[in-house]
């Protein structure tokens, strides 16, 4: 077999992987704060995935504990496995009145402590300051990383910087919007287009493979009959 056959096989494997990434994006069409994954082919045999961190559209829910981030940055949460970062602002209160994600991760304040609230009826301003009956009780931690820091997905709507020593800093320009949720940052139609593109590319590689195979066959046939 010629090298072309292997190249075509590799090409189809890569397109298969790309489809896996697209299907994960589409499966998360209703996941708040979800960031779409993209596959990048740097050269023929080398590929990598990355999360596209663009802003998702902000949907109004009128629920006081739903908060969306407009701009760069993350909320900081504490889980049993340590501190993680998230863009999903569908917060709720746990049985002890602490602000948490639906999966139980505790939302941290600027002082790196869990936030305890009396009730859901709070006002959260653009800086993430939480007001109960007009008194400021706490402030949400909203942090960002240097653009060079790559964020790794951990599932459960959580992110973690891939470098251990990455330094977080306050996201001063980011706006916290109460009563809203950030939706997944892709539109279904675009993702479907990528899916069709993937399938056609896959088909093309298979056709290349078939053509090479056919050429070989004819070559063998002619050599034998001569």
């Amino acid at each position: 077999m010629r090298i072309g056959s292997y190249a075509a096989a590799l090409g189809s494997i890569e397109q298969g992987k790309r489809l896996e990434v697209i299907s994960n994006n589409l499966a998360n069409a209703s996941t708040p704060g979800f960031k779409r994954e993209e596959v990048r082919f740097t050269d023929f045999i080398y590929e990598e995935t990355y999360s596209q961190m663009t802003q998702g559209s902000v949907k109004t829910t009128s629920n006081p504990l739903d908060v969306a981030l407009v701009g760069d940055g993350y909320f900081k949460v504490q889980t049993k496995e340590g501190i993680f970062y998230t863009r999903a602002g569908n917060f709720t209160l746990n049985a002890s009145g602490q602000l948490s994600l639906p999966n139980g991760a505790l939302v941290l304040s600027k002082k790196n402590l869990p936030i305890k609230l009396e009730s859901e009826n709070v006002t959260i301003d653009e800086k993430g300051r939480i007001m109960e009956n007009g008194n400021e009780v706490d402030q949400l931690a909203v942090v960002q990383f240097d653009p060079s820091v790559k964020m790794e997905k951990r599932g459960f709507n959580l992110f973690k910087p891939s470098q251990e020593d990455a330094k977080e800093q306050e996201a001063n320009t980011t706006i916290v919007k109460q009563g809203s949720l950030e939706e997944a940052n892709f539109n279904i139609v675009e993702e479907m287009t990528r899916m069709i593109d993937t399938m056609r590319a896959f088909e093309a590689y298979q056709k290349t493979f078939q053509t090479l195979h056919e050429e070989d066959r004819q070559l063998i046939r002619r050599t034998v009959t001569r």
Binding site: K17, E20, V21, S23, N24, N25, A27, N28, S30, T31, E37, R40, E47, E48, T49, Y50, S62, N63, N90, T92, P102, N103, E120, K150, E152, K153, G155, F156, S162
Partner: peptide, 20 residues
């Protein structure tokens, strides 16, 4: 720069009641 991470889908974590 970013490695290869492939997700495995989505799950429902809770059905939350909204007391507005």
């Amino acid at each position: 720069a970013s490695g290869i991470q492939v997700g495995t889908g989505v799950k429902a974590v809770s059905v939350q009641k909204l007391f507005s």
